[in-house]
Design a protein around this nucleic acid. Structure first.
Lengths: 114, 114
DNA sequence: AAAAAATGCAACCGAGGGGTTGCATCAGTC
DNA sequence: GACTGATGCAACCCCTCGGTTGCATTTTTT
């Protein structure tokens, strides 16, 4: 059993694809759009970017694979929706790293003062 | 003037490379090592991973480019140190996105109730 | 001064990422 | 049923990424 805060290699393998999905300006832009304007279709989204609709589709697929968006067919169009859960996961990873660093600093301080 | 919380395209262009640097399991592992064990050299770090020293060097260069680590020559070796500032930046980006979403939800709620 | 350790530099390689274009398909609309 | 709009699918292209190997360079150490 590992503490829930531990940053095990297994956790890293889960975190990496998540951050990778966030590591593209167009994809971040898509998330912002979906956050601000609410659920949208591909064609509507691609109107806001300088790339083709198919390129946007691929980006949305990547975001969906990472769990950052979901989609649902509705008649002849597909609606894409932002999914805040995974964003919280990403936040947790960063918090854990940060905490690990603080702990290390504490150890160093204790060592210097001893 | 844009509010400091706004997620402008300019901010996204800054955030994307940062998240991209975090989007690799080996690089996340390097950050964890540097956090937990304190500043280390390349050879010492590469001992903990299954890839060559040169591969680790490239990863460290990527992390340095993103501002997540710094390095300093010391005699015949180079010491790599974790840099917590940029991690805080990443955290801020996520928080802004999350907040934007909450605002949108609030608007939706107000609309439904009107 | 010679050997050993730590790093730097450069070329190369295969896979995947981001983008495009063209065409097929499917669902409303007149 | 014919037309139009929104997607889906597939092939292709170029370039970056992660990784390798081989060798040069710089500092210690003996």
């Amino acid at each position: 059993m590992s503490r829930p805060e531990a940053l095990s290699p297994a956790r890293l393998k889960d975190a990496a694809p998540l951050f990778a999905a966030l590591g593209d300006a167009t994809r971040l832009g898509l998330l912002v759009s979906l956050c601000a304007s609410g659920p949208l279709t591909v064609t509507r989204l691609s109107g806001q970017f300088a790339v083709s609709r198919q390129a946007i589709t691929k980006h949305l697929d990547v975001l969906a694979e990472a769990g950052l968006v979901t989609s649902a067919r509705q008649g002849r169009e597909r609606i894409w929706t932002f999914e805040p859960k995974r964003l919280e996961d990403a936040h947790q990873y960063l918090a854990r790293l940060s905490r690990e660093w603080d702990v290390a600093l504490g150890r160093l301080k204790a060592f210097v003062e001893s």
